[in-house]
Design a binder for these strands. Sequence first.
DNA 1: CTTGAATATTTTAAGCTTGAAATAAAATAG
DNA 2: CTATTTTATTTCAAGCTTAAAATATTCAAG
Lengths: 156, 156
Amino acid sequence: MSNAGNNNPLPKARLRLWLRLLKAQRLIEAELREKLRIEYASTLPRFDVLAALHRAERGLKMSELSDELMVSNGNVTGIVDRLVDDGTVVRVPVDGDRRAMRVKLTDQGRDYFRKLAGEHEGWVSDLLAMFDEDSAEELAARLHEIADANPESEVN
Amino acid sequence: MSNAGNNNPLPKARLRLWLRLLKAQRLIEAELREKLRIEYASTLPRFDVLAALHRAERGLKMSELSDELMVSNGNVTGIVDRLVDDGTVVRVPVDGDRRAMRVKLTDQGRDYFRKLAGEHEGWVSDLLAMFDEDSAEELAARLHEIADANPESEVN
DNA sequence: CTTGAATATTTTAAGCTTGAAATAAAATAG
DNA sequence: CTATTTTATTTCAAGCTTAAAATATTCAAG
């Protein structure tokens, strides 16, 4: 049967929510991207990789990185290549498994990221200045439900 | 002065909010992208262009398209090129301005999009099934504040 | 008119992203 | 042991994305 002219308001409300979410994300991402580019000659994907590595004391394997960031593994290869060229990260062999590589921040990379991360937090805080602590946390909790209800999404 | 060890909870809460927003967006986008690819051999950027054109009866100029979608104008050129190859859209000269082009859905493109849009709404609704109409609308309103407070962000 | 600034679009080079195929090593069976 | 399958990563081709430069046209002074 045809669904033409269907006007059920629930799916429409959810669709509007999705479009708003997308618009907010794009706006914030565009601002952050521009700041990273102009002030640090860097990019968001690079920042994301550094952030993930900074959270992981002893580094991450390529596959752990791509899981963490929800991007394909082939993608991470290229970004890490460029970070290696910069001298901010290194690939070290995982002993006991000659297939795997552990990616770690260099000392230089760690210093660099710490400076960046402080700035980044400030930029985000400015962009989300309309939320006080409570509303930010409440909103974050609501958004968490989305990831919670749709687990294990594989990107590969 | 150094900011090391700063633990101000407000920026941290906003940063968490941003990370949640980003995670939710990526999850939904990955699902939609996969469905479009597998079931329709299409992509999200193409869908976004078609959706914008569907909302605009008499078509959109290239620059209107890139404003609407918040992507660079060079970007739209490539996507529209491919849609023209598919036969879903056409570029028609704007009379009175030989620089400009108006992009319009073809009849075939309109039919195709209508089918797609119905499916798309269903996919989104399923992914956001944890929100009833009221919470979806409330959340959307909260997110709208972000775009509202950061207007006129130029992507070009 | 003509010159110069502004606008609309495309092109370009570089980087990001994906899914699939290729490579290599490890783990599992038989 | 050896063959098969699984796992970790890279490579590849195609498409997306950006910022900047190039083109082409229109608009605004003078």
